[in-house]
Every structure is written in structure tokens, then in C-alpha cells.
Design a protein around this nucleic acid. Structure first.
Length: 285
DNA sequence: TAGACGTGGCC
DNA sequence: TGGCCAAGTCT
């Protein structure tokens, strides 16, 4: 449950499923994961996105092994101490893994509340204390019932009360929806999208792609070298796998300025997603 | 508290 | 084609 909830942060379930399955097959327990180098977690994360989550999940596994006898904490507060576990994930694990009464508030629940109760098309850009209070007030008293409630409201938001084209005609509570009653008024604000092409994030992603493709340190020159420099073998005579070559081509195709590449690499080192060794760059131990 | 942080499917 | 969006967390 913990692994799935972290993977599901900002990530659609269809993309999580296969990675989660591989992950659980390989590391059935926190101790099993903690016994390996952190880089293995990052590599197994694949292209799920936000790879720092892999690092934090790894750190959480280490903390659980060292401080909790290898058992995932069952309380909201205990879960909250784990790296990469915020209020949503702590509540979700407490509720769904342990049947505890916990106030789960994710983007789906926020949207359902905004529509049904507040009558607005979308929740505010940032989570407010008022929303948390509302969710807490709506939550059934009994533990198992509250867990079911959390799952139900989240699922309603994910499948019916969706952001883009809500299926109000099929909604089981359409007669109680303030937003529908008000004639589905338009959102009061416009979400600002995240730029991607040309950003540091894109470059970081491409660098990570290179590092995941090999266990050898990648010399810095290779990140900066223009595509034609990539021959059949490396500057030092080492041979490149087809996957590594492919990732290097992907990075080079971005034609990122050297300063941006430097910045991206520096950021990855800073975040612990990469380390320097033998004059090259590779995933962390 | 606003901004950084990946990725790919959908319309 | 391109913006929108997905079960957030951390600083």
C-alpha cells in the first residue's frame, strides 16, 4: 500500500501498475529494498516520473527497517515521519492498509467537495485548512466505514466527477450536487500549466535516462558531446549498449545549452539522484 | 506559500 | 499539435 501510494502521487494508475508489480516481486519487504543500493530503486522506478520519489521510498524503507522493526507504521503520525510521506499518503496508508480512521484528501476528494458542497467547478490551486476541516467533518465515525468512505469519494472523483468531462448523468449523487444545481458554472480561475520543452526538468529527465541505462560512471564529456562524437565506442574505448546510446541520443537531441546541462547535473547531485565517481556520473550507492 | 519537481495519454 | 491533467511532497 505504501509503495503504491507513493507511486500514485501525481501519476495515473495505469502507468503505476506494471512498475508496482515488478517492484513488489523484487522487494516484498522494506528490509529487502533497504539491503540494496539506492540506485537500484531509482533504476527500477523507470520512467514513472519524479524519480526523487524512488529515493524517498528507499529512504523510507531504510527508516522502517532501522526504526520500526521492518513494519510499516500504522498511525498517521508515525507514517508522516517517513521520507516522501506527506499528509495524503500518511492518511491513505493508515486508512487503506490498516483500516484506521484518517482524513484522506487528494485532488479527487477536493474536486468532489468543491462541486457537491461548495458549488464550484474546481478546488482552489492550494489545499486550505477549511477543505481539511470539511473532509474531516464528512468522514464517518467508525474506522472501517471511514476507510470505505475515503475510497468511495476518491473513486467517485477519479471515475465520474472528473476534472475535464464529468459524467454528471451517471453520478449517483447528482441530485445533491451544488455545482450541478447551479448550472455547472465555469472555473473561477485558469490553472497555469507546467512548461516542459526546454526546461531544466526535461534535461534532468534525459540525464536520468542516461544514468539508468548503465551501471558504469558516465564521463561528463559524454553529456556535452554533440551527437556526431558518439562513435561505435567511447572516448576511452569502452563500448556502449544500444540502450545507453539511445538515451545519449535522446539527451543530445534536446540540444540544451551547456549551462543548463551543468545546472541539471548539479541539481541531480544535490538531490542525491546522481553521484560523482571516477570522474563520471552514476546512480547513487 | 509559491515554485520546483517527470512523464505520457488524452482530447 | 499542444495544453491539460494524474491517488503530492518538500523547501
Amino acid at each position: 500500500m505504501l509503495v503504491s501510494e507513493v507511486m500514485l502521487q501525481q501519476t495515473p494508475v495505469t502507468r503505476v501498475l506494471p512498475i508496482w508489480q515488478e517492484w513488489m516481486d523484487r522487494w516484498p519487504t522494506p528490509a529487502a529494498l533497504a539491503a540494496e543500493p539506492a540506485g537500484e530503486a531509482v533504476r527500477a522506478w523507470g520512467r514513472l516520473g519524479y524519480p526523487r520519489r524512488a529515493l524517498r521510498l528507499y529512504a523510507a524503507a531504510a527508516a522502517i527497517t532501522a526504526d520500526h522493526d521492518g513494519v510499516v507504521p500504522d498511525s498517521f503520525d508515525g507514517l508522516l515521519t517517513l521520507p516522501g510521506v506527506g499528509t495524503y499518503t500518511a492518511a491513505a496508508v493508515a486508512a487503506f492498509a490498516y483500516g484506521r480512521r484518517a482524513t484522506v484528501v487528494d485532488t479527487n476528494i477536493r474536486r468532489v467537495q468543491a462541486r457537491v458542497i461548495s458549488g464550484s467547478a474546481l478546488p482552489a490551486p492550494t489545499l486550505s485548512a477549511a477543505e481539511m476541516r470539511l473532509a474531516a467533518a464528512l468522514l464517518p465515525e467508525e474506522g472501517a466505514q471511514s476507510a470505505k468512505w475515503n475510497a468511495a469519494v476518491m473513486e467517485l472523483g477519479a471515475l465520474v466527477c472528473t476534472a475535464r468531462a464529468p459524467k454528471c448523468g451517471n453520478c449517483p449523487i447528482r441530485s445533491e450536487c451544488a455545482w450541478l444545481a447551479a448550472g455547472q458554472p465555469a472555473p473561477s480561475y485558469v490553472a497555469k500549466g507546467q512548461p516542459w520543452a526546454g526546461t531544466d526538468r526535461q534535461v534532468r529527465g534525459a540525464v536520468m535516462g542516461v544514468l539508468r541505462a548503465t551501471r558504469m560512471p558516465i564521463q561528463r564529456e559524454l553529456f556535452f558531446a554533440p551527437v556526431p562524437e558518439l562513435g561505435d565506442d567511447g572516448l576511452d574505448g569502452t563500448t556502449f549498449s544500444e540502450s545507453l546510446r539511445s538515451q545519449l541520443r535522446r539527451l543530445h537531441s534536446l540540444m540544451a545549452p551547456e549551462s543548463q546541462l551543468e545546472r541539471a547535473i548539479e541539481g541531480l547531485l544535490q538531490d542525491g539522484l546522481a553521484q560523482s565517481r571516477e570522474g563520471g556520473l552514476l546512480l547513487p550507492d
